[in-house]
Computed example of a mutant assay.
Amino acid sequence: MSHTAHIPSHRKPRRSSSKLALRAGVAGGVLSTIAVAASPAQAEPVTETIEMPTLTNVDLSGALSSAVAASAEATQQDALVQDLRAQEDAAAGKAAKDAKTAKEQAERKAEAERKAKEAEEKARAEARERASRTAERTTLSASSNSGDSDGGSSSSSDSGSSRSTATGSAAAIVDFARAQIGDAYVMGATGPNAWDCSGLVQAAYRQAGIDLPRVSGAQSSMGTSVSLSDLQPGDILYWGSRSGSYHVAIYVGGGNFVGAQNPGTGVVERSLDYDAPSGAVRIL
Rank of each mutant, 00 (worst) to 15 (best):
E88L: 12
A92S: 14
K94N: 12
A95K: 10
A99P: 13
K103M: 14
E104T: 10
Q105P: 03
A106L: 11
E107M: 11
E111W: 03
E111L: 08
A112N: 08
E113W: 10
E113F: 15
R114A: 10
K115H: 01
K117M: 13
A125P: 00
E126L: 07
A127S: 15
E129T: 12
E129W: 02
E129H: 04
T134V: 11
A135E: 08
E136W: 03
L140A: 05
S144Q: 08
N145I: 05
N145C: 03
S146W: 09
G147H: 02
D150H: 09
D150A: 13
D150N: 08
G151C: 05
S153L: 09
S154C: 07
S157K: 14
G160S: 15
S162E: 07
S164R: 06
T165Q: 11
A166S: 13
T167P: 11
A170K: 11
A170L: 10
A171Y: 12
I173L: 05
V174K: 02
A179Q: 07
Q180G: 00
G182K: 04
A184C: 00
A189K: 00
T190K: 11
G191Y: 02
N193K: 01
N193C: 00
A194H: 00
A194C: 01
D196W: 04
C197L: 07
L200R: 00
R206N: 03
Q207H: 06
A208Y: 07
I210V: 14
D211P: 05
R214C: 06
R214V: 04
V215S: 09
V215R: 04
S216C: 10
